[in-house]
Nucleic acid binder design. Structure first.
Length: 585
DNA sequence: GCCGTTTTCGGCCCGACTGTTTTCAGTCG
């Protein structure tokens, strides 16, 4: 059973417990455990199988869950989940997905009206039965109908970070003429650089909220104003994207930015730290609690709030880069003084995976080189597809050698820039590489990748990747899991075996920077680092514009806690060769 | 259900907004 499957089971238990009206902290315990398993850098099953280790050493897993997880790993089933599922019709739980309808109200609808499907819920609303329930009313009934209509049309996918970034740019431009605004930041998962973003949270320090909110109501593509109060306003765009706006005073701006950047898990720890120091933190600031009876969010003496740095400093914490604020290992790093100095876009000296018109790219070799030079890179590798990828006009040995001759001639003319003779060689369904060894031996840089036979069983696909990685000519595996965010799951590959092979043969793994791939993802990059595998961040550009994807890869690497040294292509080419264990420096 | 330098019980992050009530519960972030 994979960690992802265990995570799903724990989350399902949490959903059902919530519906049941169980103790909220018990629900949270299951959610925490789900997250803890999801964030593991190795299979839970392996820890369970190791006599010298205890599941209770994983934070968030105690004696009870340890036993339940062992049971789950051994049998593939969790009795608690089966019991909870038997209590409610599956359709009743669908109500939890309607915005505005939470577990309490959904459970009341099931209990009082025996609602067991969304169709029944719609009928009950139309028959005006819902408004008769205690705690419900005509407005709630209408809100449920509207919420159902919305839930039916919305695409469940979250936005790619790159798309969210475009909205962020639009937001900044839209508010630029607003004179009242002193500071503006887009917080939330967007600021943390998460690979997908569900909604956007704008934080504004303004002299007067009214004109700012009026301006917000004029945002292009607006579909509905979902709510507007004195300090908070929410809108939804026709594209279904929700954007929240909060106006905060300057003295609280840093506290609010910290608070609304999250993550929720990070902030829970921050709050606990505050409490340890006799402080209280909320979006208004850090307060010393002098009179325990004093009520209100700003009761007590304010200690910090103007900037994020002073808020963290008041708690004895460093200013965490937003990308690290996931409640993973950042506090452990901070406590031991080992908060990594994260890689930056300007650290990258090379891009080692890109295509040209020779295969399925849209820009020529010369255009790609000029574009790479314009972006300040010192060298690149041209890695067109090999012949198996016929759809992409992949190259056979002869065409490849002609391209490499062309690159040799180009290099003669270039000053202070080098083009590596490379290829993205396919790992064929049966295992061997798509080009012969003598051809591959002539290349400077070879990335190997799986495009066919993606649905093979775990052992088979892992064997293919491991074998490719141990081939002397191969330098790195490109997009090692094959996932396409929101579109396609990753292959069933045993990444631990891949890490071990990479270390053994001194090879690299790619972090593909394409916004739809980001493969390896942040957690896998962190695991690779723990195992000692260097990462190469590449764009897989299919046009000159594609080279700009590097920043998406860098964000993901930062979320993994990677430093400049963890990433191969921050070095010059001779240093890369040394890292591969080849002569060259 | 987890957790512990106020430890084995009693906490567990906290506030805005909405709708329903009339002081609060539910939902959301």
């Amino acid at each position: 059973m994979t960690n992802a499957e265990v995570t799903q089971v724990l989350d399902q238990v949490a959903d059902l417990l919530e519906f049941q009206g169980a103790n909220a902290f018990r629900v949270r315990a299951y959610r925490n455990a789900a997250r803890a398993v999801q964030g593991l850098s190795e299979p839970l099953a392996r820890i369970a199988a190791d006599e010298n280790r205890k599941l209770t050493d994983i934070p968030g897993i105690g004696a009870d869950l340890s036993a339940k997880l062992r049971d789950l790993l051994a049998t593939g089933k969790l009795p608690l989940l089966e019991e909870l599922r038997a209590l409610y019709p599956a359709g009743a739980l669908d109500m939890l997905r309607i915005p505005g309808l939470g577990p309490k109200k959904a459970a009341a609808l099931y209990r009082e009206l025996k609602i067991a499907s969304l169709d029944q819920l719609r009928t009950a609303c139309l028959a005006e039965q819902v408004r008769a329930l205690k705690g419900f009313g005509a407005k709630t009934e209408a809100a449920i109908l509207a919420g159902m209509e919305f839930a039916a049309t919305v695409q469940p996918n979250r936005l790619y970070w790159a798309v969210a970034d475009d909205f962020a740019r639009q937001i900044r431009e839209h508010f630029a003429p607003c004179q009242e605004i002193r500071q503006l930041e887009i917080a939330g998962s967007y600021r943390r650089g998460k690979e997908t973003v569900g909604d956007l949270d704008i934080l504004i320090d303004a002299a007067d909220p009214t004109p700012v909110m009026d301006r917000f109501a004029e945002f292009p593509g607006l579909d509905a104003v979902l709510g507007r109060g004195d300090t908070k306003m929410s809108i939804r765009l026709a594209t279904s994207l929700q954007i929240d706006l909060r106006i905060v005073p300057a003295e609280s701006y840093g506290a609010a930015l910290q608070y609304f950047t999250g993550s929720k898990e990070h902030n829970i720890v921050v709050r606990a730290r505050a409490k340890d120091r006799g402080l209280r933190i909320n979006e208004y600031g850090v307060f010393r609690v002098t009179d325990p009876d004093a009520k209100g969010p700003t009761a007590g003496k304010i200690v910090a709030g103007k900037t994020e740095a002073e808020v963290y400093a008041a708690l004895g914490l460093p200013l965490f880069p937003p990308e690290l604020r996931e409640g993973r290992r950042e506090f452990e790093w901070a406590d031991s003084g080992k908060l990594p100095r994260l890689i930056e876009l300007s650290d990258l000296r090379a891009d080692l995976h890109m295509h040209t018109t020779e295969s399925d790219g849209r820009s020529s070799l010369a255009e790609m080189v000029a574009a790479a030079q314009a972006r300040g890179l010192a060298y690149i590798a041209i890695t067109d597809h090999s012949k198996r990828v016929s759809m992409a006009n992949g190259l056979d040995a002869d065409r490849l050698k002609r391209q490499w001759d062309q690159i040799d001639r180009l290099n003669d003319q270039l000053k202070g820039f080098r083009v590596l003779k490379g290829v993205e060689v396919d790992i064929l369904e049966g295992g061997p590489l798509d080009l012969d060894d003598s051809t591959l031996a002539l290349a400077d840089w070879v990335v190997a990748s799986v495009h066919y036979g993606q649905n093979q069983p775990r052992e088979q696909i892992t064997r293919r990747i491991v074998d490719a990685l141990s081939h002397p000519a191969v330098c790195a595996i490109a997009h090692p899991t094959g996932r396409l965010i929101n579109i396609r799951k990753s292959y069933e590959v045993d990444l631990d075996a891949v890490y071990a092979t990479a270390v053994r043969y001194r090879k690299f793994l790619e972090l593909n920077a394409s916004p739809k791939r980001l493969d390896l993802d942040d957690l896998a990059c962190a695991a690779a680092k723990e195992h000692g595998v260097p990462i190469v961040i590449s764009t897989d550009a299919h046009s000159t514009a594609g080279l700009d994807a590097m920043r998406f890869g860098v964000l993901q690497a930062r979320r993994a806690g990677l430093t400049k040294d963890d990433v191969v292509n921050t070095s010059d080419w001779p240093a890369v060769l040394r890292r591969l264990g080849r002569a060259g420096g």
